[in-house]
Design a protein around this nucleic acid. Sequence first.
DNA 1: TCAAAGCAAGTGTGATCACATATCAAAATC
DNA 2: GATTTTGATATGTGATCACACTTGCTTTGA
Lengths: 242, 242
Amino acid sequence: MHKAAVERNNDVFAAQLVPVGRETVQDRVYSELRRALIGGLFEPSQVLTIRGLADALVTSTMPVREALGRLITEKALEALPNRSVRVPPITLERIDDLLRARILIEGEAISLAATRMGPRGIATVEALLREWDEVRALKQKKDIDREVTLNQSFHFEIYRACGSAVLIPMIESLWLQSGPCIRVAIYAFSEAGEVDTAHYHRSIVAALAAQNAQAAREALVADISRPFAFLRDKLQSRARTE
Amino acid sequence: MHKAAVERNNDVFAAQLVPVGRETVQDRVYSELRRALIGGLFEPSQVLTIRGLADALVTSTMPVREALGRLITEKALEALPNRSVRVPPITLERIDDLLRARILIEGEAISLAATRMGPRGIATVEALLREWDEVRALKQKKDIDREVTLNQSFHFEIYRACGSAVLIPMIESLWLQSGPCIRVAIYAFSEAGEVDTAHYHRSIVAALAAQNAQAAREALVADISRPFAFLRDKLQSRARTE
DNA sequence: TCAAAGCAAGTGTGATCACATATCAAAATC
DNA sequence: GATTTTGATATGTGATCACACTTGCTTTGA
């Protein structure tokens, strides 16, 4: 490295313990948008503009347009023929389609994980379960964002154990696509008095601890089907009344 | 629309029959790179540079960098910590990983297609089969590119019938990822005197015509497993001799 | 009063520039 | 002679500009 370059910008803040692979603005924007999408912070059918997001994220348009392009290829966003981009709208077909894909792929992932997850992995997800209980214990205010995050950590901690560098990105893409739908479902749960999600998660952990792949898959399918089924009913009844 | 704008660039070539949704340079570059990747025109581990591709495709760096970013999110390319990008290298684990995912997802897709593909769809894929035979009939020169393209058309014509807007992009992503591997396998076939691929394809069509989902799935699995198994053996024997 | 033309603000796309970093070979130092 | 330093070139990243297209509102004319 040039000595001049070192002197010019070797400020202590940038010189962290990561010698290579620094974080670019583009990556930051991409992660930010991903989090927002998975967390359901955007409404379905909401239109996003490059300059608007750039202002909100305090950068130029460059990193935003690249991040949007990437999200479009993942089907997390949708490019309209006008060249404007929006969050994909919810339809009955799309809900069923997404659920089927998630059952197929996440089911396979958890089957693999059931045989490959060691005691350490089990302990980790059990810790997440306890943390969940703590959050729910002080349920004075429903901290939906926190629950969404914990749910995500729980699932991906398991999927990570399947050891597939191909399946996991696909699951991430599926979560990205179902994020906006799920958010709607969660609000619906809040209105309708929700069933205990933790119960399903405990079944999953029990099956994993017993290395019972089939039971783990069935418990997982029940867990991810529930919000979809709820959302499906809601959409159908809305369609009937209109 | 501004009259001035109309006068300035309403040239007859641009004014095609597509009123909206014109093709951008970025889309062209992206498709071009996709084709090259699926066709296996890039070597595994090959490093790609933005400016190099921009020169080759006769544009500026702008469209190329966006296309590369999209391909990286699809795992069709790989971002090194140096921020340079390359075609992912082939490893034994990756081959098995890709094959498992393809069996899972393409198997599901063809199962759905078996019940939903009408006589018209069957006729289309049969036509592709005949075209394939014609190409193979004049086998004086092995037109590998043509065969790769026909193979791709055959498979995706079937998958399209499954009617899933979620599964099909995932399959495209899988093909993108296995493209470079497959190319290696095809060359290996050429060296070793290949088995007749058309035979497997005929089994698939027969099963589809009979609406036998299970048989279709099995025939498909045999079809896509073959090059992977071949490549796997090749890699293993190479590892042993080293 | 209503519809068509015109205009202005907003938006996506592509090109170019500036800069920090990466890479690699030549030169200098031990 | 081996290792380090130094410099030149190449490359990715982010910002900005120019331009074409879209959109919505205003103005104009029947």
